[in-house]
Design a protein around this nucleic acid. Structure first.
Lengths: 168, 168
DNA sequence: TATTGTTATACTCTATAACTATA
DNA sequence: TATAGTTATAGAGTATAACAATA
C-alpha cells in the first residue's frame, strides 16, 4: 500500500482508502516531479530552519560561492526568478553579514556579489544539512541509479531551457 | 553552453557568463528537481490559463475523477496539503459548477466529492493541454528513458513518503 | 476524545510596474 | 535605447489556530 504517484491500488476493508488512485495524473511527468518536490522541499526547509534561512537564500549563497563576483541578474536567470526577487534575498544575506555587494568597476550598474567568510561557513554547514536529507535516497537507489536519475533530470532540464529560454 | 544544473563550464569572451556554475548545488537531487519543476510548472500554468484554473485545482479534479466520492482530507493527504487549503480549491470548483459536495450517508462528517459532467469535460481538456507541455520531452527521451525516469522518481517518492508520512 | 470540514488570518514567495543610474 | 538594480505593491499558495458537527 503506497501513495506512489503511479500506484493504482484499490481500497480494502482494513486499509480504507487512505491513498487515492492517481488516475490520469500518473502519466504526467510534472505530477511526479511536483510530488517529489513537495516532500523533498519540506525536508530541506526543515533542515535549514536552524540557520534562519530559506532554500532560495541557500541557493543564492551556493551560486555566489561557485561564481564569485556574479551579478544579481545572473543569479536571477539561473534560479528562474525575477531580478526584483533576488534583491530581497541579497538584502537579507547582506544584512546577516553573509554576503557583500561590491560595485563593479567595469560596469558600474552591476553589483559584484561575494560571500563573506561567515557566509562561506554557514553555506558549508547548510550544504551538509541539505545533503543529509538525501542520504537515505542515495543509499536505497545506489550510485548507479542515482547517476541515472541525475542524467535524466539534466536532459529534461536542457530541453525545457532550450525551448523556454529566460526572457530578460 | 548550457545552464543544465550539473554543467560546469567557464565563461568565455563571446559568451560572457550568462550561465553560472552550479557548484555544490550540482550534487543535490533537490536542486535538480526544483530546477525542472520551475520550468515545467511555468508551462503547465500557462497551458491552464485559458481555463481559469491553477495546477492545484486541476490536480484535485483529476484525483476526484479517478476516485469518485473521495473526501477532502484524502485529497489533502495525497497532495501534501493542509485540509484547510483543500476547502478553498473545492469551493472554487463547486462555484464553477465543476464539482459537487455530497454529504456522506455513512459518515456525515465527510463530504463525498464528485465531478459534474462539465467538470469531467474541462478536466479532460486540461489533461490534454497538460500532456502537450511534455510532448517534446517524451519525444527526445523516448519511451524507454521516460519509463526509466518515471520509475526512479516513483522510487524516490516511495522512500520519502515512507520516512515522512502525512501527519494528519 | 478524535476526526472532518470550515473560517479567519497571516505568512512566504514571487511577479509587475515604475523608477534611478549607468551603459 | 537598453540594462542592472531598486522600491512599492499585489497576488497566489499555503499554513495555523480556533471552531462546529459528527463519530
Amino acid at each position: 500500500m503506497t501513495g506512489t504517484p503511479g500506484a493504482e491500488e484499490t481500497a480494502t476493508e482494513e486499509h480504507p482508502r487512505r491513498w487515492l488512485k492517481a488516475g490520469l495524473m500518473a502519466d504526467r511527468l510534472s505530477f511526479r516531479v511536483r510530488s517529489v518536490m513537495a516532500l523533498l522541499g519540506a525536508r530541506v526547509t526543515e533542515a535549514f530552519a536552524p540557520y534562519g534561512l530559506r532554500p532560495g537564500s541557500f541557493t543564492s549563497m551556493a551560486l555566489i560561492s561557485a561564481n564569485p563576483g556574479s551579478s544579481q541578474i545572473e543569479l536571477a536567470r539561473l534560479g528562474g526568478l525575477d531580478k526584483s526577487s533576488i534583491v530581497l534575498i541579497i538584502d537579507d544575506l547582506v544584512q546577516r553579514g553573509y554576503a557583500v555587494r561590491a560595485k563593479s568597476t567595469e560596469d558600474r550598474r552591476r553589483s559584484s556579489l561575494f560571500l563573506t567568510r561567515a557566509g562561506e561557513e554557514v553555506m558549508a554547514q547548510m550544504y551538509t544539512a541539505a545533503m543529509a536529507t538525501e542520504t537515505s535516497i542515495r543509499a536505497e537507489l545506489g550510485p548507479d541509479d542515482m547517476q541515472q536519475l541525475f542524467g535524466l533530470l539534466d536532459r529534461v532540464y536542457a530541453i525545457l531551457e532550450r525551448e523556454d529560454p529566460p526572457i530578460d
